[in-house]
Amino acid sequence: MSKNIRIIPRLDIKGPNLVKGIHLEGLRVLGKPENFAKYYYENGADELIYIDVVASLYNRNSLHDIIAKTAKEIFIPLTVGGGLRTIDDIRNVLRAGADKVSLNTAALKDPKIISEAARRFGSSTIVVAIEAIKQSDGRYLAYTDNGREYSGVEVLEWAQRVEALGAGEILLVSIDREGTGSGYDLTLTKMVSCAVSIPVIASGGAGNLSDITNVILEGCADAVCLASVLHYDFIKKQIVDKELFKIEGNIEYLKSGKSFSKIQTANLPEIKEYLHRFQVDCRHRVNAEAVHA
């Protein structure tokens, strides 16, 4: 039996709201992260990732309340990222109830934080997010601050370095594909996944079910992050309480009641059913009877 692929909903959070952008920009408010998280947990999500998308921009991390609430209700692993700059920041997020942290900007600025954090909290607690942008000459470079800041560091070289420094997993984000629904960057994913011996979580670009099997079978991803495919599916099912979103952010999308045409939405049981059909092993959906030996 090969390994079981993890399906991980990614929740980008700004203030009290779940948001979604394109290329991590132009953020739309989609709802309350707690509601989405609970729904995904009950539908068989294998883990969850929370990213405070504006944290490094404003030098803040404000997710503690949301993390603590999640940890009381949701018993699957939770990774938290965005704006974690110091060992103390990491400790605080773990104390609030996160199981793993995702580092990007701080790690590129000072890679020693990876080895220090791995030593203190264990390698398996430290995920390094690599935000990749393909250059016109075909090279992939790592960016920081949600794809805004150029670092000049090659993705492949950086991936191998973070493994050597003690990272437990890599969250590989294609900024080019992020939010577009045009499919994962298979070349990027395969290049990184084959070059390291730690698990690689593919993120950015899922627009339909076949994109997911492609990044597993061709891109050799060990786990898959999903946002739009799941979020827009959940939105269709709920009655939007517009009063909730008065406080902050762009709610035009929610008010419009439209669906997002580039994304073929699906829920977690449908995704897992589809993976099984393609002989991709994964944890069965909730209440499924079949055990794949």
Binding site: S2, N4, D46, S123, S124, P199, D222, A223
Partner: peptide, 19 residues
């Protein structure tokens, strides 16, 4: 082991769900 007796390579640590 990172490689099993059939020559397949495995990611270590094992991270995820198993039976």
């Amino acid at each position: 082991p990172t490689v099993n007796n059939k020559g397949n390579s495995y990611k270590i640590p094992q991270v995820g769900w198993n039976m």
